[in-house]
């Protein structure tokens, strides 16, 4: 299986542990991710706040480059990238005005985009293309006894995703259960993490972050699993401030791909787990086989 791959800026920066764990896990499953040549920033929410048409042009350059690779699907792990690329696809279909501007921009640069290539999340690929049975076969170190709160955040499930439910998604739940983990009920799984408000307006943003962490602790989780680099950063990097303001909520937040890597027996040192502020406790040693 081969896919075009758009990592996005975060996976080369604050979220590099996501890419560090995603690539070996996919390789283990025989999925080849081919990084787009000279991709640019997707624009995320900030760019869209300044200019809509330019935001679509920005995203369309990536879509055009992806289409040129001849792959069937484009895979993108970051929630913001996933949203913006899908949103642009919808806008190109629905708005003749935007389509016109984007076509002009692409033609001027010698690029083409038909509008057809699906933009998909790794979770979708793993559960629907690879399949849980194949994943189960690769588990050498089941996460038995590890209590995980599955946290999806907003932009992968809303409003464009077609592979899971907007309010009660379950793909990651099922994936984590396949790894042997105990998935705790986590009703806040699609609530907002605060996005960039944690940096711009900490009083507002961090409250949202705190509520998510507090609830995971209350539910008895050992770790929160996330699918988005911004969620991971918000839930992991502000514990100092959170503790000062509201008290400690000591729980680590890791990427679901890191948990997959652990279950597949990949060395911990190669999964980016050391990049966490709040580190996950090492898994207990496997009982010796009789």
């Amino acid at each position: 299986m081969k896919y075009a791959y758009f990592p996005g800026c975060s996976l080369k920066g604050l979220g590099r542990a996501y890419e560090e764990s995603l690539l070996p896990v996919m390789e283990k499953l025989g999925v080849e991710l081919v990084e787009l040549n000279d991709w640019n920033c997707c624009g995320a929410t900030a760019y869209m706040s300044v200019d809509e048409t330019k935001a679509c042009i920005l995203a369309a350059r990536n879509l055009a480059i992806a289409e040129k690779t001849g792959s069937r699907d484009l895979v993108t792990p970051c929630s913001a990238c996933y949203l913006v690329l899908n949103k642009t696809k919808h806008y190109l279909k629905d708005s003749p005005e935007i389509r016109g501007s984007v076509q002009r921009a692409l033609e001027g640069a010698g690029l083409r985009y038909s509008g057809e290539m699906p933009v998909r999340h790794p979770l979708d690929i793993l559960v629907h293309d690879v399949g849980l049975d194949v994943i189960r076969e690769k588990v050498v170190r089941p996460l038995t006894g590890l209590k995980v709160a599955p946290y999806y955040g907003c932009q992968v499930v809303r409003p464009y995703a077609t592979f899971d439910d907007a309010w009660n998604p379950t793909t990651m739940d099922r994936l984590l259960a396949t790894l042997g983990a105990e998935v705790v009920p986590y009703p806040l799984k699609t609530k907002c993490c605060g996005g960039s408000l944690t940096g711009t307006l900490p009083d507002t943003g961090l409250r949202l972050t705190y509520i998510l962490l507090k609830e995971a602790v209350r539910r008895g989780a050992d770790v929160i699993a996330t699918i988005c680099p911004l969620c991971q950063f918000n839930l992991d990097a502000y514990h100092d401030q959170l503790t000062r303001q509201w008290g400690p909520v000591p729980i680590p937040t890791v990427y679901f791909t890191q948990l997959m890597g652990l279950a597949f027996g990949l060395p911990e040192s190669q999964l980016g787990l050391r990049r966490n502020f709040v580190r996950m406790k090492p898994l207990p040693a496997l009982p010796a086989r009789a």
């Binding site: 800026c9 920033c41 900030a46 300044v50 940096g199 711009t200 307006l201």
Partner: peptide, 23 residues
């Protein structure tokens, strides 16, 4: 107000570099 300032700084960085370096 920091939020529109972030949006504009983001916009400018994308124009000049094509990518964002978050830090």
């Amino acid at each position: 107000f920091p939020i529109p300032i972030l949006a504009k700084e983001f916009f400018k960085m994308v124009h000049s570099k094509g990518r964002i370096t978050e830090t």
